[in-house]
Design a protein around this nucleic acid. Structure first.
Lengths: 405, 405
DNA sequence: GCATGTTTGTATGAAAACATTGCAAATATT
DNA sequence: AATATTTGCAATGTTTTCATACAAACATGC
């Protein structure tokens, strides 16, 4: 509606600079004060007082560098204090719940995953189960560890306010999941996002696409989701639903999709489609996929043909996305990541056929974070919010009363 | 590669605030100082000196408001000085060249379009022809009009540095179009972008999607292009090629596309496909389209069926884009805009079938700027760059020597 | 026509933050 | 041990905004 951001007050300069430096340390790791100067363009004096502030707030610690042979007085190394500053990520997968504790700087301090009974729980049980794991993780943290919030990855449509519109694989719909969690974890801010969007965030920050600013992450399970990083930031769309690549039409004469349409990409590259092609039960789940991968490894012809067909359909949809988004890296997560070694060749061939020549210079790689990409992304998303204004984030932790704002 | 922006110096606060206010006036039109205060959150004193600065620089003029019946001292209206501050937009269409002079605030001060001989010119002639029109426009501007730059819209792939990689419909490839123009228009900065991206910018600022932050613009001519506005800003992609929606695969068993692939969206919804469906010569161009529209208006059955089929294919591709991008408005430009009244119903039906329910709340509208969307977008793109830092933009104009930076 | 209330612009002083400058500290080299 | 280099630290100056007080411009009511 209205254009132009808020005006910049004199006082916000400090906040912005503190945020800039802390984010730099979080993403690029420990570095000397001089390195900070070169990244930010600030003067020695300014960096000095800013780092001193961050140290006083407990965000960083300065250490003397090991001699490296260069002349001149050595510049102290500024290190993010991972153990004293952390966020929590939760991943509500279809058959398991994962929780991580991620320190400032990105290190995963603790990681738990617990299988859930295949029978579908209600929302209450789902939340209670996850909160138990959160408590378990919090109990192992140091006594002085400050936790800045909880991020939750959900396989479903989540709007910008954290309301879960639809999550068929969890059997949920129209639930304000953020509020549910906040009601139980009353002392921490909670954010909820789609798992593919968070997977994209994680892989672009810590994983296979680290440092890339234009990334497409594909999450292939029963459903197919996508997360887009554009100019280094998650692409949310109007309501937060962007990235539903599973429902791009690729085959007008294709199969009926769960969404009601015909020929969605998901019907061709989802897990059931793969298993069907390979002559395995479509709902065979993870074990069936393992069987398939084993057969592929041992050179089974039928399986290889099935994978080749799968690769072609993967290429059809992916080519369209590459032409539209012009990303520099595609990260294959979930099922796609496991399949990648077996279909990379056919996939690349299909892409060479369908992607415009100018857009062909891309990297399609398997996820390096694997199934943990969404959880790590959830924790990372909390950092993204907190590091936007570390001062008030810290203030809010100290006086939760002010969190009403 | 590196993360985190530059550090904020005390002096850059002023620049940021000047930029914020000027952009506000450019996009939202004249407003009182008080209104500026409400938009920016700045105090009376700050707004006062900032506006005084802008006035001294010749960007704005203050006028006394007409009495409106409210008590209290009236707040002066701050008006962008359109006639003293302008940008130039150029549009190199397939068969014509358009040039506009756009004042600060968005008003189109002058607009020329000249048909070009259908025979393809070389790059040199194309540039020379356009520059003649630019000179014509410049000569009609006031003597004290400052022109902040020239933006050029091209139907083709343009990278971030203004190099034209491929423009099949102009018969050009691998040309540094920006440099060519700069060599002739030596006194002005030049930027080059894809016409669909600029059309999207124009429609999201001044046209059918004014004020919307998430917009997809479709440019339908012989080729099909797209421009995406995400979070209010153009989505460029890694190299600036994002938005090539014409080559999204929609029909694996379809026709061979000019790009070498099979079943691109363009083969189903491009002008030739439409004309073929309606039993007209595929290369009939604009006159054939007029014939088709006339027949549709008079209720010709075959034509209506052709349009219905066209609408369905339009819906197939558009549904995929909506699911991926979650935009709030789709603006149909070029051919699509002219067709819209005749196929809106069938298109909406197809979208309802294929777009996820949560994403269905969108507006598909015809362009209001029509064929001028890309030219206006080109001028608007220059403003976008100049208003990012009006002070240095002005300094550069005054001392072109500094433009070397 | 005048007093009153309301809203706003202007002017002055204070506070915050960074840049600049000079000097001391810590390293490598000769 | 002396020199060159790079850096941290402290003091001073500049810039910008905020807070406050006062004057100006409008409407209303008597």
């Amino acid at each position: 509606m209205t254009s132009g951001g808020p005006g910049l007050r004199s006082a916000s300069v400090r906040r912005t600079n503190l945020s800039t430096i802390l984010r730099l340390l979080h993403l690029d790791g420990p570095m000397s004060r001089t390195s900070i100067r070169h990244h930010t363009g600030l003067t020695r004096g300014a960096v000095g007082t800013l780092v001193a502030d961050l140290e006083a707030m407990g965000f960083v610690r300065e250490t003397t560098p090991a001699p490296d042979g260069t002349p001149g007085r050595p510049s102290p190394i500024v290190r993010p204090r991972a153990r004293t500053n952390a966020t929590i990520g939760i991943d509500l997968m279809v058959d398991s719940t994962g929780v991580v504790l991620q320190g400032l700087g990105g290190a995963v301090l603790r990681s738990i995953r617990r299988d859930r009974a295949p029978g579908r729980l209600g929302a209450d049980d789902l939340v209670a189960d996850a909160v138990r794991l959160v408590d378990q993780v919090r109990s192992t943290a140091d006594a002085d560890t400050r936790i800045f919030g909880v991020g939750i990855a959900v396989p479903g449509l989540v709007d910008r306010d954290g309301r879960l519109t639809l999550a068929p694989n969890l059997g949920l719909a129209e639930i304000d999941l953020g509020r549910r969690f906040e009601a139980v974890i009353h002392d921490l801010p909670v954010i909820v996002h789609n798992e593919a969007n968070l997977g994209a965030l994680a892989e672009s920050r810590r994983g296979a696409a680290a440092g890339r600013d234009h990334v497409l992450y594909l999450s292939g399970e029963v459903g197919v989701g996508g997360g887009i990083i554009a100019d280094g930031e998650p692409l949310t769309g109007r309501a937060g639903f962007a990235g539903e690549v599973g429902h791009v039409p690729v085959n007008p004469d294709g199969l009926l999709c769960g969404c009601g349409a015909v020929g969605c990409w998901e019907t061709e590259v989802g897990e059931p489609a793969l298993l069907t092609r390979a002559g395995l039960p479509p709902d065979g789940g993870r074990p069936a996929v393992e069987t398939l991968l084993n057969r592929a490894g041992s050179g089974d012809d039928a399986t290889r043909h099935a994978l080749a067909a799968h690769a072609r359909w993967l290429g059809v949809g992916l080519a369209g996305l590459l032409n539209v988004l012009d990303v520099e890296a595609v990260v294959l997560g979930g099922l796609f990541g496991r399949l990648h070694p077996h279909l990379a060749e056919d996939l690349d061939a299909e892409l060479d056929r369908r992607v415009l020549p100018a857009l062909r210079d891309r990297a399609v790689v398997a996820s390096t974070l694997g199934d943990d990409a969404p959880v790590i992304g959830a924790a990372e998303a909390v950092w993204r919010a907190a590091l936007d204004d570390p001062v008030t984030a810290l203030d809010r932790l100290r006086s939760p009363a002010a969190a009403a704002g």
